Amino acid sequence: MPDPDKHLVGIRMPRTLHKRLQKLAQERKITVKNLIIEILIRETINTVLTPEDYEQIAEETRKAVKRNKNR
């Protein structure tokens, strides 16, 4: 079952960008997924979440847990 605290995001990107990501990930000896996560963390680290944001995240997580239990 998927982790209820994770959100699946799918994107389409130019093949040239994907190839660059593959090469950079290979150089760093990590997966493309982990490279993208590292980049996103670095670029959003200074974005402040409000208490309302955290409550929304908690509510979405609770709903995901409930959906997983019903499967």
Rank of each mutant, 00 (worst) to 15 (best):
A64R: 07
V48G: 03
K29D: 06
R20E: 10
I39D: 03
K69S: 15
H7V: 15
G10F: 14
P51I: 05
T61P: 00
D3Q: 11
P4I: 03
L35Y: 01
D53G: 00
R67W: 06
T44L: 14
I39H: 02
R15Y: 10
I39Y: 00
L24A: 09
L21E: 04
R12T: 14
L40R: 00
D53A: 05
K23Y: 06
K23E: 14
H18Q: 09
N70D: 14
P51D: 02
K6R: 13
L8Y: 13
T61N: 06
A64W: 04
V48K: 09
H7M: 14
Q22R: 10
I36N: 02
I11F: 12
N46P: 08
M13K: 01
R62A: 05
E60G: 11
E43H: 07
E38T: 06
T16D: 08
K66N: 10
H18C: 10
Q22S: 09
E27T: 02
M1N: 11
I57C: 06
Y54V: 07
V9G: 09
T50S: 04
H7K: 13
Q56D: 05
I57K: 11
N68G: 11
H18S: 13
E55F: 01
M1T: 12
P14G: 07
K23D: 14
R67K: 13
D5Y: 12
R42W: 06
I41W: 06
K63R: 07
P51E: 03
I45T: 07
A25H: 09
K6P: 01
T50I: 07
E52P: 04
I57Y: 12
T47K: 13
V32Y: 01
L40M: 07
D3A: 10
P14W: 04
Q56N: 12
H7W: 15
A64H: 04
N70F: 06
V32K: 00
R71L: 15
I11Y: 10
I36M: 00
R67F: 08
D3C: 01
K33E: 15
A58K: 05
Q26P: 04
T47I: 15
K63H: 02
R28K: 15
H7G: 04
I57E: 03
L24K: 08
Q26H: 12
K69M: 14
R28Y: 09
K23V: 10
D5M: 03
V32T: 10
E43S: 05
I11K: 11
L49Y: 12
E59F: 09
L49D: 08
I41K: 07
P14S: 14
D5I: 05
I11T: 06
N34E: 13
E60P: 01
D5T: 15
V32A: 02
K19E: 10
K6C: 05
P4C: 01
E59R: 07
N68I: 14
E60D: 12
E55G: 04
T31A: 05
R67G: 08
K66I: 09
R67I: 10
K63C: 00
R28T: 03
E52I: 02
R42A: 14
K6M: 08
R28C: 08
E43T: 07
I37W: 01
I37C: 02
R67T: 09
A64P: 04
K33N: 13
Q26V: 08
H18A: 13
N68C: 06
